[in-house]
């Protein structure tokens, strides 16, 4: 049994921890509508959409959000999902010696070595390929970084799909490509969706790779065009605009998650008699 004193201490502790995490979110909700924003959390005296209006008029930021981020995000998502689906299918069904080791080594390298440490070789590689300052270059580097984990997730999913689905299609007379298109891919769909959303969120939020590989301001995605809202001379952030831009930047990802959860519900539907 807890004494009343212990309960009070515990409650106060929980409130303090919750406040620590919730306060920034409250700022994120209120600040965009406050024309006189500061870093303090304040409920706006006379809320307005003026901050959003100013952001929407910034053509560089809006092109970054509505065009470049979409191209990079969707490109990375489609590329990673398709490649991961094919690779995971092969690794799950084929007889590749040492395949578990292969996947773990790939994941280890992609999570430990990429990022900051490999930026110089990646830059040189992309430069040699003539892909500096192109979306294609950014997309390929991101696919490379995300692929091992994506393969791992999808392969786990394919492993749980009974082989008899494919065997039934084989005996029915389908070619390997027909089997993949008609049977395996649709059955793997929920797993691929999970990976797709995960990749999109990652690509949407990626900063370092596009920041380094892109020069032309017209090609920068939203994660980098945040820098538009810094005063050029003083270098101070215009947090009033940054907060509004942050809302616009976060919204698509949240909407996508809700849409997929509502439409597909991340589930597996069975046709195998257990």
């Amino acid at each position: 049994m807890k004494t009343p004193l212990q309960r009070i201490v515990l409650t106060v502790f929980v409130i303090a921890v919750a406040a620590f995490f919730v306060t920034p979110l409250l700022w994120f909700v209120f600040a965009p509508f406050n024309p006189q924003v500061s870093l303090a959390v304040t409920i706006p005296q006379n809320p307005s959409l003026a901050n959003f209006a100013e952001v929407l008029n910034n053509s560089l930021a809006m092109r970054g959000l509505l065009q470049n981020s979409v191209i990079i995000g969707v490109g990375t998502m489609v590329g990673t999902s398709l490649t991961a689906a094919l690779a995971a299918y092969g690794l799950s069904r084929g007889n590749v010696p040492g395949r578990d080791l292969l996947i773990y080594v790939l994941i280890l390298f992609s999570s430990v070595v990429t990022g900051t440490a490999s930026m110089v070789p990646i830059f040189r590689l992309v430069f040699t390929l003539g892909l500096i300052d192109t979306h294609a270059g950014v997309i390929m580097v991101m696919i490379g970084g995300l692929l091992p984990s994506a393969i791992f997730i999808v392969r786990d999913f394919v492993d749980s799909v009974p082989r008899s689905y494919e065997e039934a299609a084989m005996v029915a007379g389908a070619s390997p490509m027909q089997i993949f298109r008609d049977v395996t891919l649709p059955i793997m769909q929920p797993g691929i969706l999970v990976v797709g959303v995960w990749v999109l969120v990652n690509a949407w939020g990626a900063f370092l790779i596009p920041f380094i590989l892109l020069r032309n301001p017209d090609l920068l995605p939203a994660s980098v065009t945040f820098y538009t809202f810094y005063d050029v001379e003083s270098g101070t952030p215009q947090i009033r605009l940054i907060s509004a831009y942050a809302v616009l930047y976060t919204l698509p990802v949240i909407l996508l998650y809700l849409l997929i959860n509502w439409r597909y519900g991340f589930r597996f539907f069975g046709g195998i008699k257990q």
């Binding site: 039934a168 649709p186 059955i187 069975g270 195998i272 008699k273």
Partner: peptide, 15 residues
């Protein structure tokens, strides 16, 4: 040119 019925039937769940 063979046809097979599987133990778990293997009916495609999405069709």
């Amino acid at each position: 040119d063979v046809a097979m019925v599987f133990q778990d039937y293997a009916l495609y769940p999405h069709m």
